[in-house]
Design a protein around this nucleic acid. Structure first.
Lengths: 184, 184
DNA sequence: CGCCAGGTTGAAGCGCTTCAACGTCTGTGG
DNA sequence: CCACAGACGTTGAAGCGCTTCAACCTGGCG
């Protein structure tokens, strides 16, 4: 975490205690849909998914893998009710910081400001890609891209969650996969 | 610009000269697709659109209205060729800062760091909404939302650009609109 | 064993696309 | 001033891809 930004020793000592390590078992919730998201979680290991419960099937809106952040940012930044929940797909180790502590960290550490900016920018590039992918790529292409990003995912979470991330129905994903098998 | 972040007088004096005001006439390009995006532009007035030229029709990927930023962020941050172009939809007044100057500004001003972070976070919430909208909303709903955000847009840019922003073909948008007229 | 969750497959339906024709408006040149 | 061309939008008809609904299969588990 500290490698990419030049923290001074003093800064790091003040900022580090504001964090908290949290371990989530598989299927445990980091955030319940409708609650205010008070915690920003950095995924040290494991994987989480953000989902909506309105729909019949648990609807996966996004995944967070190692070195990603897991958060409903709109809820966290604006301190308003979240529109999604967050659940651990596997046992996951998180480094968490509360909204209050994060604001405090930003106050005492310019380097942490920079770090926060870089993280937001990285997330921005990711979201940008996702928008492009939803606009321009076929479900099959989106599926192949996701598999490339995390091949193990397939072994651990139901296909209907993957389908919802891709923006299609489970049955359609099933056919996409059948098609890919035929091609090979 | 300075209102939302506590710039000290000295900081602001050092950062302000790094910016440059630019005026773009209608249809003038801020960025040509394939070039490296070297400039971050804040839209003081006017409107721009980000588009791809691969497609037959100019494909609008996103719009930038007043108080938005116009930039291919992936290209700007990574200094690699852009996948989109940026064009003025109307005569637009921009406050620009180059990648080099922005990095310099971040170095001399912690308040500017914070400002940058807040801007990235705002863009993040926007992109997040867009992803949700593409996943969950119908083209008709997306159309109504866009019209609410900038009703004048309709008068100034071709419908086929709006269609591509929504992720549908011009003919489909035409039918959506015909449908809405019938309903009223 | 029997149940249930997850996945696949088939058939029908629907929404967006594709292609083609036509309408309208605007600008341009004879 | 009219004629014509080109850009933009609309409309119709056919096609295709994803959805919907229903049936069925499989593996895990009480």
């Amino acid at each position: 975490m500290a490698e990419c930004v030049p923290f001074s020793k003093g800064e790091w000592d003040r900022v580090q205690p504001l964090h908290e390590v949290k371990i989530l078992e598989k299927n445990e919730l980091l955030l319940r849909q409708g609650e205010i998201c008070t915690t920003l979680a950095f995924v040290v290991s494991g994987a989480l998914c953000q989902f909506r419960t309105e729909d019949v099937d648990p609807y996966a809106y996004d995944f967070s893998f190692e070195a990603d952040y897991a958060v409903d940012f709109a809820s966290f930044a604006g301190q308003k009710p979240s529109t999604i929940g967050i659940r651990a797909l596997r046992t996951s180790v998180l480094v968490c910081i509360s909204k209050k502590n994060l604001d405090a960290a930003y106050k005492v550490s310019p380097a942490f400001q920079e770090f926060g900016r870089l993280m937001a920018e990285r997330a921005l590039v990711y979201d940008d890609d996702r928008v492009k992918s939803l606009l321009y790529d076929t479900p099959e292409e989106r599926y192949l891209n996701l598999m490339e990003r995390d091949p193990e995912l397939l072994q651990e979470i139901p296909l209907y969650s993957i389908a919802s991330y891709l923006g299609i129905r489970p049955e359609s994903l099933s056919r996409v996969r059948a098609n890919l098998n035929k091609k090979k």
